[in-house]
Write a protein that binds this DNA or RNA. Structure first.
Lengths: 354, 354
DNA sequence: CTGTTAGCGCCTTCAA
DNA sequence: TTGAAGGCGCTAACAG
């Protein structure tokens, strides 16, 4: 029905060679074993008749797609999409393409997306975990398709991960506030179930202790990683008797929520009255405009992406070469410590004069 | 090599039916023609042995993937990803999945991405055009795979498009400024090659004329749609003898650049001195914090996404049903006006008191 | 309602 | 270095 598509047979005919030769010539892995002369003939013929490889047919045969998937908690999030963009650039430089999917911030969604990607036979999956558990990832990984975690760790898995050095970041961030003379500093937001939150909290504690400051329950307003959480926390802080001088926000969203609550006090944008100083994780194009923001931790998304791609491609290659690589992979996965890479972060100062 | 996968044959064997029956049972289009009893048997068998459809094989046969692709100029852009997110939700509700690709802001990249999606046999493509020309889109569209444009129009195509009512938006936006008593208003940014820019400019003109205000060359600072462009334009404005009272920014990025330039005047965030009022296209989580921003035009990304999905799915369905739908499609594409949908926008007021 | 069968387009031994 | 041929797993006639 309709127009028949141009196949490898047509190319073979046009070039006066066999389909096998055409296949070898067009092999993306460049298997070689084709004379230069025929190569050229085949390419010319293919171009001449407008041949396009049928990827479905190729995948059916090879069980691979030269594709890696990424599942992010949400698409409309600059940090995640920065990452995705970096990854896609690296990948396409290596002849791979990226499939982007959203887990919609739920482990359930993550499961579904990951399954969908697996069904599509992606060669590997980069996951920015939505939750704190990840059995569904482990099973994939040991079951054959390489997985690498980015940004967050996950309980109960032994999977490679590329992370920021959250603890050191939080330590430096807090240290800056201390240098500036602030003492009553409160850490805001963060679920204990989330590795980044735990690590950042630990960094905060370490810095405070190093400065000889006693921490108590009031030093933390834990719970939540979303905008609303930051808003709610700031609300409580504003209503408390003796508000802190400075605050450390666990991430971009909580930070935004806090600033939003601060802004909500005013009909206009006047900012008289209590105005704390905020030091926050995550830099964006807009943090310079947030009135309370004095310091941010900028994560190196470009390097994270690069590293993630390196790792996943490595695994994919190993898998391919391994021939019957299954047992071998099992072995490796069983005995190798998962590689966890920590990337350094940068503290940025945002000028402000309140 | 390695473990053999579970196929439809295994399911057939386990359920004691033929592969054809299994295939029919599992048909996502629910072709029917299977008794309830066998249905259940097949499902049970499939689940029992952990069967997963091999999508590559299915696609090879059906030439369809239940997938639609979207190509956006960039991933790290809230407006585009808002759209993508909405589209993906609609789509997955209909049993389709979304493939996200980035054209990296170039027509060249757009061509490549679109070709890649076509090679992957996506059933349809949603394009947020990167440039002003789109022959590569037309050829796809008439060649068989449905395309729908979102956000922007493109020259030399007859393709359905879902757009915001840019002209009306710009008119209302400008009218607000006029109501507030501003007279010396300048329109900033916008390439004449880009449909949104042209339409917004037209709306601005219309509103100004309606208010009896004479426009001259100084009423526009055209050129560019990026952050740097906004920055540069604002730079010139600041250095000009008699700066305007209010500005209309053509989009989010130009707006951001303008605010950035304004901010750059100060070591801290003090904002004394000249401070224009800005009315800008595009609302985001952060616009409330931009100091010069008084009004924004919020586009209805949710509806745009919904509409885009409706349209593309419609086309896909028509194509399928059409049997030998090729000529018919040709006919339609040739004779039908492309459907252009304009969605209403909302003007938001951001309080500020400068 | 169900089964038989012939490919979809490609890759990959195996032999030449 | 090249060619011939047998599937990869699934669907869609066509029979029954």
């Amino acid at each position: 029905m309709g127009e028949r598509s141009v196949t490898i047979r047509d190319v073979a005919a046009a070039a006066g060679v066999s389909t096998a030769t055409v296949s070898r010539t067009l092999d993306p892995d460049g298997s070689g074993g084709v004379s230069e002369k025929t190569r050229l003939r085949v390419f010319a013929a293919a171009a001449g008749i407008g041949y396009r490889t049928n990827l479905a047919a190729r995948s059916l045969k090879t069980r691979s797609t030269r594709t890696v998937g990424i599942v992010a908690p949400e698409l409309a999030n600059n940090f995640f999409m920065d990452l995705a963009e970096g990854i896609e650039k690296e990948l396409s430089a290596k002849g791979y393409t990226l499939l982007v999917a959203s887990s919609d911030n739920s482990v359930e969604g993550e499961k579904k997306r990951v399954a969908m990607l697996a069904d599509r036979m992606v060669d590997g999956i980069v996951v920015i975990p939505a939750g704190s558990r990840g059995e569904h990832l482990s099973s994939l990984h040991t079951g054959g398709i390489p997985v690498v975690l980015v940004d967050r760790l996950v309980e109960g898995t032994r999977i490679d991960a590329i992370l920021s050095d959250n603890e050191a970041g939080a330590r430096s961030l807090t240290a800056k506030l201390l240098e500036d003379g602030f003492r009553r500093i409160v850490f805001v937001g963060g679920d204990k179930a989330v590795s980044t939150a735990r690590e950042r909290m630990a960094g905060f504690k370490a810095a405070m202790k190093a400065a000889g400051i006693r921490l108590n329950r009031d030093s933390f307003r834990l719970g939540g990683m979303e905008v609303e959480d930051g808003f709610a926390h700031m609300d409580v802080i504003l209503k408390s008797g003796r508000p802190p001088e400075a605050l450390v926000a666990v991430n971009l969203l909580v930070h935004l929520g806090m600033e939003r609550r601060l802004l909500a006090r005013f009909p206009g944008r006047r900012t008289e009255g209590y105005m704390p100083v905020i030091a926050a994780f995550d830099e964006s194009d807009y943090t310079p405009f947030l009135p309370a923001c004095r310091y941010t931790v900028a994560q190196d998304t470009a390097s994270m992406g690069k590293e993630a791609v390196r790792r996943i491609l490595e695994r994919i290659a190993r898998r391919k070469k391994g021939g019957n690589g299954f047992q071998e992979e099992q072995f490796q996965t069983g005995n190798t410590e998962p590689q966890i890479i920590r990337l350094p972060v940068t503290i940025l100062k945002h000028f402000q004069d309140r």
